[in-house]
C-alpha cells in the first residue's frame, strides 16, 4: 500500500526552479532511500513534503489525502516527523525539554521513552544537559529520538550519517532497522554503504528530476547505473 506519493512535483525557491518533476511512491513499511549528488534536490524534496516549501504545480498525498497546501504543523500532526539536514535541535533546551516538546500531550509515554533510552543510551546519560553541549553524533541521536518519541507513521530523515564516525554510523543503522519495523522511513543519504544496508526501495534524484526508481537490490547489482547516477564526475 502506498503511504506517501509525490505527483509531478515542481518546487521553486524564490526565483530559482529547484525541483522540475518529482514523482515517487513510498510504500508503507521499511526504509525508502533517496539518493543523489550534492545539490540534486533531495533536501528540497523533503522540505516540500513537510510544507516548508510549497510545490506548484504538483501535489503530495499522504494516505490518499492531499496535503500539498496544509500548514507544516498540520502535516506534522498527521503523523509525519522530520529530521532535517542540520538536525534542528534546540541547543538552549535540555535533552528532556527537546523530547517533551515532541510529545503531543506534554507527557512521556514510559514505554516509548524506555525504547529511546535503549536505542540511544546517551540520551539518558545527558538527560538534563543543554543540547548544544552534545557531540555531533549525540545531537543526531537526539534529532532521531525526537522523531520517535511519539508514534508516527512516516519519518523523513535527511543525511543522518553526515560527519559521523563509523562506529556511530553502525549504531545508527541498527536503530533505523529497529525503527523501520513500526514506522516507514524516507531516508535521504549520500553514504551508499549505509543506505544500501537499510533500503528496500529507492530512487535517485538528479538535477531536480527522478533519474531512477526501483528496488535497492536491483540498483546494487547494476554497477553501471550507480556509476552514472552517483559518481561525482558525470
Amino acid at each position: 500500500m502506498t503511504l506517501l506519493s509525490l505527483n509531478s512535483m515542481k518546487t521553486n525557491i524564490g526565483q530559482y526552479s529547484v525541483l522540475h518533476d518529482i514523482s515517487i511512491n513510498v510504500p508503507e513499511g521499511g526504509v525508502f532511500v533517496l539518493l543523489g549528488r550534492n545539490g540534486a534536490g533531495k533536501t528540497t524534496t523533503l522540505r516540500s513534503i513537510m510544507g516548508l516549501w510549497k510545490p506548484s504545480p504538483g501535489s503530495v498525498t499522504f494516505r490518499g489525502q492531499d496535503i500539498t497546501n496544509l500548514h507544516t504543523a498540520d502535516i506534522a500532526r498527521l503523523g509525519i516527523a522530520f529530521v532535517p539536514e542540520n538536525m534542528g535541535i534546540f541547543g538552549g533546551l535540555t535533552i528532556e525539554e527537546n523530547l517533551i516538546l515532541a510529545t503531543k500531550t506534554g507527557q512521556f509515554d514510559q514505554t516509548r521513552l524506555d525504547r529511546v533510552w535503549e536505542l540511544f543510551p546517551a540520551m539518558k546519560t545527558f538527560w538534563t544537559k543543554q543540547a548544544w553541549s552534545l557531540s555531533g553524533g549525540q545531537k543526531q541521536m537526539l534529532a532521531v529520538s525526537r522523531a520517535i518519541i511519539e508514534q508516527r507513521d512516516l519519518i523523513l530523515i535527511d543525511e543522518p550519517t553526515k560527519g559521523l564516525a563509523p562506529s556511530i554510523i553502525d549504531a545508527m543503522a541498527d536503530a533505523f532497522r529497529e525503527i523501520s519495523e513500526t514506522t516507514t522511513i524516507l531516508l535521504v543519504e549520500q553514504n551508499f554503504q549505509f543506505a544500501k544496508s537499510l533500503g528496500r526501495d529507492m530512487a535517485v534524484i538528479d538535477d531536480g528530476r527522478i533519474a531512477h526508481a526501483g528496488t535497492m537490490a536491483d540498483f546494487v547489482a547494476d554497477k553501471e547505473l550507480q556509476e552514472s547516477l552517483l559518481s561525482l564526475s558525470a
Binding site: A73, A76, P84, I100
Partner: peptide, 24 residues
C-alpha cells in the same frame, strides 16, 4: 510551562517547532 517551552524553542528555530506540529 509548556507555552514557555514552545516560545523558547521557537526563538531558536521556528521552523522546527512547526515541523513538530505547533502553530508558531
Amino acid at each position: 510551562t509548556r507555552i514557555g517551552l514552545l516560545i523558547r524553542a521557537g526563538v531558536e528555530n521556528r521552523e522546527m517547532v512547526e515541523a513538530l506540529g505547533f502553530r508558531i
